[in-house]
Amino acid sequence: MSWDEDGTPHPLALRRTGRSELEPDLLPEVRELEVLGWEPAPEELRWAFLPYVWPPAARTWIPDRSTHWAVQTSLDGHGHITGVECAPLPDTDLDGLDGETDTTLAALGLPPRPRGRLWLLRPVGPFPTLAAVLAHLDATAEARGTEPGLSPEFLALARAELTALHER
């Protein structure tokens, strides 16, 4: 298992360059890959390890050209919205989010994720969607007495189960 540090992005990503003001899931290359059966890897911290253990033939990545936005809402004394401002998240905030993920991965014994990548996964086994695979991992963990979440035990279970599903 690895982060495919020396790998290249999906070929569809090579057609586009430069920063986009779109959020990650709205990038044209993400939309194109979704049509081909790829789904963005979940962003929830509890699944931060997933691209690392996902079968390599069923995962890919593209450069992250997206903009992550901070939205600030102003309210009056009655709770009514009086203004909304959107601004790109500063690099320091993005680094903080990456640092939290890296700390979580380190606690699982995994190296940090390569920066600047958006991971996309294809469902494995008999499951039609990524959500169905994740629900299966949670149910399998519970059936085997393993708490689903960020633990070495759940990581090992997910790795083994994803490998078995991919080989079916």
Rank of each mutant, 00 (worst) to 15 (best):
W119S: 15
S2H: 06
G83A: 04
R144D: 13
D76T: 04
H68K: 08
A158T: 14
R15F: 10
D95P: 07
P111K: 14
W69E: 03
L105C: 10
V84N: 05
A106V: 08
H80T: 09
A106N: 11
P148R: 08
D102E: 09
M1G: 08
T60G: 01
P111L: 13
P63C: 00
C86Y: 13
L155H: 11
H136D: 15
I62M: 04
E147N: 10
D76K: 05
R15Y: 06
T140C: 11
G18I: 03
G79P: 06
G37D: 05
A106R: 14
L120W: 10
G99T: 12
V133D: 09
A158H: 09
F49N: 01
P152N: 09
D102M: 06
G145A: 14
G77Y: 03
L157V: 05
G109D: 08
E142S: 10
G7N: 01
E161Y: 13
C86I: 15
L121P: 10
L108W: 09
P152V: 15
P111Y: 12
D98R: 14
E153D: 15
P128N: 07
L105N: 08
R31S: 10
G7H: 01
R117S: 15
P126G: 12
T82P: 04
L36R: 14
S151W: 06
P152K: 13
I62Q: 00
P90W: 09
R16S: 13
D6S: 11
G109L: 14
G109E: 13
E5S: 12
A143T: 07
W119Q: 11
E44Y: 00
R122Q: 15
T101S: 12
M1D: 04
V71D: 06
R144W: 12
R168E: 15
L137K: 05
G116N: 14
A135N: 13
L22Q: 11
E5Q: 09
E5Y: 04
V53E: 00
T67N: 03
W47R: 00
E32P: 06
V53Q: 01
E39Y: 03
G96P: 09
A48W: 02
E44P: 00
R144L: 14
E21H: 12
P152W: 05
I81F: 00
S74V: 02
T129N: 09
E161F: 10
S20Q: 05
R46M: 03
V71P: 00
A58M: 05
W54A: 02
E39Q: 07
A58T: 00
A70I: 08
Y52H: 11
A13Q: 03
L36G: 06
C86T: 15
E39M: 04
E21R: 15
D4S: 07
L45P: 01
T146I: 14
G99L: 12
T103S: 13
